[in-house]
Protein backbone atom coordinates (compact mmCIF):
# COMPACT_ATOMS: atom_id res chain seq x y z
CA UNK A 1 0.00 0.00 0.00
CA UNK A 2 2.74 2.40 1.04
CA UNK A 3 4.73 1.45 -2.05
CA UNK A 4 1.86 2.40 -4.36
CA UNK A 5 1.44 5.69 -2.49
CA UNK A 6 5.15 6.36 -2.98
CA UNK A 7 4.77 5.55 -6.66
CA UNK A 8 1.89 7.98 -6.93
CA UNK A 9 3.71 10.80 -5.19
CA UNK A 10 6.88 10.24 -7.23
CA UNK A 11 4.95 10.26 -10.53
CA UNK A 12 2.90 13.27 -9.39
CA UNK A 13 5.94 15.25 -8.30
CA UNK A 14 7.85 14.29 -11.38
CA UNK A 15 4.97 15.38 -13.65
CA UNK A 16 4.83 18.76 -11.95
CA UNK A 17 8.50 19.52 -11.41
CA UNK A 18 10.33 17.57 -14.09
CA UNK A 19 12.15 19.52 -16.77
CA UNK A 20 13.09 17.81 -20.02
CA UNK A 21 16.08 18.49 -22.22
CA UNK A 22 14.24 21.16 -24.21
CA UNK A 23 12.24 22.54 -21.27
CA UNK A 24 13.62 25.37 -19.20
CA UNK A 25 10.70 25.66 -16.81
CA UNK A 26 8.68 23.09 -14.87
CA UNK A 27 4.90 22.86 -15.29
CA UNK A 28 4.39 24.07 -11.72
CA UNK A 29 6.35 27.28 -12.28
CA UNK A 30 4.49 27.99 -15.51
CA UNK A 31 1.13 27.31 -13.83
CA UNK A 32 2.06 29.86 -11.14
CA UNK A 33 3.09 32.41 -13.80
CA UNK A 34 -0.14 31.81 -15.74
CA UNK A 35 -2.20 32.27 -12.54
CA UNK A 36 -0.41 35.55 -11.76
CA UNK A 37 -1.01 36.83 -15.31
CA UNK A 38 -4.65 35.75 -15.14
CA UNK A 39 -5.41 37.56 -11.89
CA UNK A 40 -3.47 40.67 -12.92
CA UNK A 41 -5.53 40.78 -16.11
CA UNK A 42 -8.87 40.02 -14.45
CA UNK A 43 -8.44 42.64 -11.74
CA UNK A 44 -7.46 45.18 -14.40
CA UNK A 45 -4.20 46.75 -13.24
CA UNK A 46 -3.35 49.72 -15.46
CA UNK A 47 0.09 48.43 -16.41
CA UNK A 48 -1.36 45.07 -17.45
CA UNK A 49 -4.14 46.79 -19.39
CA UNK A 50 -1.61 48.86 -21.33
CA UNK A 51 0.58 45.81 -21.95
CA UNK A 52 -2.42 43.80 -23.05
CA UNK A 53 -3.52 46.54 -25.41
CA UNK A 54 -0.06 46.55 -27.00
CA UNK A 55 0.06 42.72 -27.22
CA UNK A 56 -3.45 42.69 -28.73
CA UNK A 57 -2.44 45.12 -31.48
CA UNK A 58 0.64 43.07 -32.37
CA UNK A 59 -1.08 39.66 -32.21
CA UNK A 60 -4.12 40.82 -34.24
CA UNK A 61 -1.82 42.07 -37.00
CA UNK A 62 0.13 38.81 -36.99
CA UNK A 63 -3.12 36.82 -37.01
CA UNK A 64 -4.31 38.78 -40.01
CA UNK A 65 -1.10 38.07 -41.91
CA UNK A 66 -0.94 34.41 -40.89
CA UNK A 67 -4.56 33.86 -41.93
CA UNK A 68 -4.02 35.30 -45.42
CA UNK A 69 -3.75 31.90 -47.16
CA UNK A 70 -6.94 30.64 -45.53
CA UNK A 71 -8.76 33.75 -46.68
CA UNK A 72 -7.46 33.34 -50.23
CA UNK A 73 -8.88 29.86 -50.92
CA UNK A 74 -12.54 30.59 -50.17
CA UNK A 75 -12.22 33.80 -52.25
CA UNK A 76 -10.99 31.86 -55.30
CA UNK A 77 -13.81 29.37 -54.84
CA UNK A 78 -16.33 32.16 -54.48
CA UNK A 79 -14.91 33.93 -57.54
CA UNK A 80 -15.48 30.88 -59.74
CA UNK A 81 -18.99 30.38 -58.38
CA UNK A 82 -19.76 34.08 -58.90
CA UNK A 83 -18.63 33.89 -62.50
CA UNK A 84 -21.11 31.10 -63.26
CA UNK A 85 -23.92 32.84 -61.43
CA UNK A 86 -23.42 36.16 -63.21
CA UNK A 87 -26.49 36.04 -65.44
CA UNK A 88 -28.80 34.96 -62.68
CA UNK A 89 -27.39 37.62 -60.41
CA UNK A 90 -27.85 40.29 -63.07
CA UNK A 91 -31.57 39.50 -63.37
CA UNK A 92 -31.92 39.53 -59.62
CA UNK A 93 -30.16 42.88 -59.37
CA UNK A 94 -32.44 44.39 -62.01
CA UNK A 95 -35.43 43.37 -59.93
CA UNK A 96 -33.83 44.83 -56.82
CA UNK A 97 -33.15 48.14 -58.64
CA UNK A 98 -36.78 48.32 -59.72
CA UNK A 99 -37.87 47.74 -56.14
CA UNK A 100 -35.49 50.40 -54.85
CA UNK A 101 -36.72 52.89 -57.44
CA UNK A 102 -40.21 52.41 -56.12
CA UNK A 103 -38.99 52.78 -52.55
CA UNK A 104 -37.02 55.90 -53.45
CA UNK A 105 -40.21 57.66 -54.47
CA UNK A 106 -41.59 57.16 -51.00
CA UNK A 107 -38.35 58.09 -49.32
CA UNK A 108 -38.49 61.83 -49.92
CA UNK A 109 -42.03 62.01 -48.58
CA UNK A 110 -41.11 59.99 -45.49
CA UNK A 111 -37.93 62.03 -44.90
CA UNK A 112 -39.88 65.30 -44.99
CA UNK A 113 -42.53 63.90 -42.73
CA UNK A 114 -39.85 62.68 -40.32
CA UNK A 115 -38.19 66.11 -40.28
CA UNK A 116 -41.48 67.81 -39.50
CA UNK A 117 -42.30 65.33 -36.77
CA UNK A 118 -38.89 65.84 -35.19
CA UNK A 119 -39.48 69.59 -35.21
CA UNK A 120 -42.73 68.95 -33.43
CA UNK A 121 -41.01 66.77 -30.85
CA UNK A 122 -38.22 69.32 -30.50
CA UNK A 123 -35.54 66.68 -30.96
CA UNK A 124 -33.36 68.32 -33.54
CA UNK A 125 -30.10 67.27 -31.91
CA UNK A 126 -29.72 64.15 -34.00
CA UNK A 127 -26.08 63.05 -34.23
CA UNK A 128 -24.18 63.75 -37.40
CA UNK A 129 -24.12 60.87 -39.84
CA UNK A 130 -20.63 61.82 -40.98
CA UNK A 131 -19.31 60.91 -37.56
CA UNK A 132 -18.38 57.38 -38.51
CA UNK A 133 -15.23 55.34 -38.98
CA UNK A 134 -14.90 52.71 -41.66
CA UNK A 135 -12.97 49.70 -40.40
CA UNK A 136 -11.72 46.46 -41.87
CA UNK A 137 -12.34 43.16 -40.12
CA UNK A 138 -8.94 41.78 -39.17
CA UNK A 139 -9.95 38.59 -37.42
CA UNK A 140 -13.31 36.86 -37.34
CA UNK A 141 -12.24 33.66 -35.70
CA UNK A 142 -15.26 31.64 -34.75
CA UNK A 143 -15.32 30.60 -31.13
CA UNK A 144 -18.07 28.42 -29.72
CA UNK A 145 -18.15 30.64 -26.64
CA UNK A 146 -17.58 34.19 -27.92
CA UNK A 147 -19.02 35.69 -31.07
CA UNK A 148 -16.80 38.64 -31.77
CA UNK A 149 -14.65 40.20 -34.47
CA UNK A 150 -11.51 42.29 -34.41
CA UNK A 151 -11.41 45.50 -36.46
CA UNK A 152 -8.40 47.54 -37.53
CA UNK A 153 -9.40 50.81 -35.87
CA UNK A 154 -8.96 51.63 -32.22
CA UNK A 155 -8.70 54.42 -29.69
CA UNK A 156 -6.43 56.32 -32.10
CA UNK A 157 -9.55 56.99 -34.23
CA UNK A 158 -11.61 57.96 -31.19
CA UNK A 159 -13.33 54.61 -30.72
CA UNK A 160 -14.42 53.89 -27.17
CA UNK A 161 -16.22 51.02 -25.45
CA UNK A 162 -19.93 50.78 -26.15
CA UNK A 163 -19.99 52.45 -29.58
CA UNK A 164 -22.43 50.84 -32.02
CA UNK A 165 -21.06 49.05 -35.08
CA UNK A 166 -23.02 48.77 -38.31
CA UNK A 167 -22.73 47.46 -41.83
CA UNK A 168 -24.81 49.12 -44.54
CA UNK A 169 -26.60 50.92 -41.71
CA UNK A 170 -27.69 47.60 -40.21
CA UNK A 171 -26.66 47.08 -36.61
CA UNK A 172 -24.18 44.23 -36.07
CA UNK A 173 -22.86 44.80 -32.53
CA UNK A 174 -20.96 47.07 -30.22
CA UNK A 175 -17.37 47.76 -29.18
CA UNK A 176 -16.34 45.85 -26.06
CA UNK A 177 -12.57 46.24 -26.08
CA UNK A 178 -10.37 48.98 -27.49
CA UNK A 179 -6.65 48.99 -28.16
CA UNK A 180 -4.65 51.77 -29.77
CA UNK A 181 -4.87 50.30 -33.28
CA UNK A 182 -7.64 47.72 -33.02
CA UNK A 183 -10.92 46.98 -31.28
CA UNK A 184 -13.10 43.98 -30.50
CA UNK A 185 -16.76 44.04 -31.56
CA UNK A 186 -19.27 41.89 -29.68
CA UNK A 187 -21.76 40.61 -32.23
CA UNK A 188 -25.52 40.57 -31.70
CA UNK A 189 -25.67 36.77 -31.62
CA UNK A 190 -23.17 36.46 -28.76
CA UNK A 191 -24.44 35.04 -25.49
CA UNK A 192 -23.39 38.24 -23.70
CA UNK A 193 -25.32 40.55 -26.05
CA UNK A 194 -28.55 42.23 -24.84
CA UNK A 195 -30.13 45.05 -26.83
CA UNK A 196 -33.43 46.90 -26.35
CA UNK A 197 -35.43 46.75 -29.56
CA UNK A 198 -38.76 47.83 -30.91
CA UNK A 199 -40.88 46.40 -33.70
CA UNK A 200 -44.35 46.07 -35.28
CA UNK A 201 -47.15 48.64 -35.59
CA UNK A 202 -47.71 48.84 -31.83
CA UNK A 203 -44.01 49.64 -31.26
CA UNK A 204 -43.67 46.59 -29.05
CA UNK A 205 -40.61 46.78 -26.82
CA UNK A 206 -38.37 43.78 -26.23
CA UNK A 207 -34.81 42.73 -25.55
CA UNK A 208 -32.84 41.08 -28.33
CA UNK A 209 -30.87 38.34 -26.63
CA UNK A 210 -27.92 36.58 -28.22
CA UNK A 211 -27.76 32.88 -27.56
CA UNK A 212 -24.44 31.98 -29.14
CA UNK A 213 -26.39 30.60 -32.08
CA UNK A 214 -26.80 32.13 -35.55
CA UNK A 215 -29.99 33.99 -34.72
CA UNK A 216 -30.66 36.02 -31.56
CA UNK A 217 -34.08 35.79 -29.91
CA UNK A 218 -36.63 38.30 -28.63
CA UNK A 219 -37.31 38.19 -24.92
CA UNK A 220 -39.16 40.22 -22.25
CA UNK A 221 -42.16 40.60 -24.55
CA UNK A 222 -45.67 41.53 -23.43
CA UNK A 223 -47.69 38.64 -22.03
CA UNK A 224 -49.34 36.32 -24.58
CA UNK A 225 -47.49 37.99 -27.41
CA UNK A 226 -47.83 36.09 -30.67
CA UNK A 227 -44.99 36.29 -33.14
CA UNK A 228 -45.66 37.36 -36.69
CA UNK A 229 -43.10 36.47 -39.31
CA UNK A 230 -41.17 39.01 -41.38
CA UNK A 231 -41.48 42.12 -39.22
CA UNK A 232 -38.48 44.43 -39.13
CA UNK A 233 -36.81 44.82 -35.74
CA UNK A 234 -35.15 48.15 -34.90
CA UNK A 235 -32.92 49.28 -32.04
CA UNK A 236 -35.11 51.25 -29.65
CA UNK A 237 -32.22 53.39 -28.37
CA UNK A 238 -33.56 53.18 -24.81
CA UNK A 239 -30.18 52.11 -23.50
CA UNK A 240 -28.59 55.36 -24.65
CA UNK A 241 -26.04 53.39 -26.67
CA UNK A 242 -27.63 52.57 -29.99
CA UNK A 243 -29.32 54.96 -32.38
CA UNK A 244 -33.08 54.57 -32.23
CA UNK A 245 -34.40 53.14 -35.48
CA UNK A 246 -31.26 51.29 -36.59
CA UNK A 247 -32.57 48.22 -38.43
CA UNK A 248 -31.40 44.86 -37.10
CA UNK A 249 -33.31 42.03 -38.75
CA UNK A 250 -36.64 40.35 -39.47
CA UNK A 251 -38.67 38.30 -37.03
CA UNK A 252 -39.34 34.60 -37.45
CA UNK A 253 -42.36 32.67 -36.23
CA UNK A 254 -40.43 31.09 -33.36
CA UNK A 255 -39.30 34.42 -31.87
CA UNK A 256 -35.86 34.38 -33.42
CA UNK A 257 -34.57 37.31 -35.46
CA UNK A 258 -32.90 36.72 -38.79
CA UNK A 259 -30.21 39.39 -38.89
CA UNK A 260 -29.90 41.58 -41.98
CA UNK A 261 -26.14 41.09 -41.88
CA UNK A 262 -24.74 37.57 -41.62
CA UNK A 263 -22.27 37.75 -38.70
CA UNK A 264 -20.04 35.20 -40.43
CA UNK A 265 -19.65 37.28 -43.60
CA UNK A 266 -18.27 40.57 -42.35
CA UNK A 267 -15.35 42.24 -44.10
CA UNK A 268 -15.90 46.00 -43.64
CA UNK A 269 -17.91 47.65 -40.90
CA UNK A 270 -18.60 51.18 -39.71
CA UNK A 271 -18.21 52.35 -36.15
CA UNK A 272 -20.55 55.17 -35.20
CA UNK A 273 -18.56 57.59 -33.08
CA UNK A 274 -21.43 58.31 -30.77
CA UNK A 275 -20.47 58.59 -27.13
CA UNK A 276 -22.75 56.30 -25.15
CA UNK A 277 -24.97 58.42 -22.90
CA UNK A 278 -24.19 56.18 -19.96
CA UNK A 279 -21.35 53.99 -18.77
CA UNK A 280 -21.20 50.65 -20.56
CA UNK A 281 -19.80 47.65 -18.64
Amino acid sequence: MSVSRDDFSIAFRSALLQRGASQKFSILSLIIVALIIFFLDVYGFTAVKTARSFINDVVYRVTYLVSAPTRLFPNINQGIANHFNLKKENEKLKQVIERYKALDLNLEYIANENKNLKKVLDTEDVQSVSNIVLAKVLVDRNSPFLKSIIINKGSKEGIIKGMPVTQNKYLIGRIVETNYLSSRVLLLNDLNSRIPVTFDEKSTQAILTGGGTRMPTLSYLPEDYEFVEDITVFASGKDGIFNAGTPIGKTKANGEVKLFVDPNQLSFVTVNLIKPKKEVF
Binding site: A15, L30, I36, I37, V48, V59, V139, R141, S143
Partner: peptide, 20 residues
Protein backbone atom coordinates in the same frame (compact mmCIF):
# COMPACT_ATOMS: atom_id res chain seq x y z
CA UNK B 1 -5.54 37.32 -27.04
CA UNK B 2 -7.09 36.11 -30.29
CA UNK B 3 -10.22 34.72 -28.65
CA UNK B 4 -10.70 37.60 -26.21
CA UNK B 5 -10.45 35.54 -23.02
CA UNK B 6 -8.66 36.78 -19.89
CA UNK B 7 -4.89 36.36 -20.33
CA UNK B 8 -3.45 33.14 -18.94
CA UNK B 9 -6.65 31.11 -18.82
CA UNK B 10 -5.87 28.95 -21.88
CA UNK B 11 -2.26 28.58 -20.74
CA UNK B 12 -3.51 27.21 -17.44
CA UNK B 13 -5.82 24.71 -19.09
CA UNK B 14 -3.13 23.60 -21.56
CA UNK B 15 -0.64 23.17 -18.71
CA UNK B 16 -3.15 21.04 -16.79
CA UNK B 17 -3.51 18.78 -19.85
CA UNK B 18 0.27 18.73 -20.05
CA UNK B 19 0.52 17.76 -16.38
CA UNK B 20 -1.96 14.88 -16.74
Amino acid sequence: VVMGFPLGISSLSYLVACFV
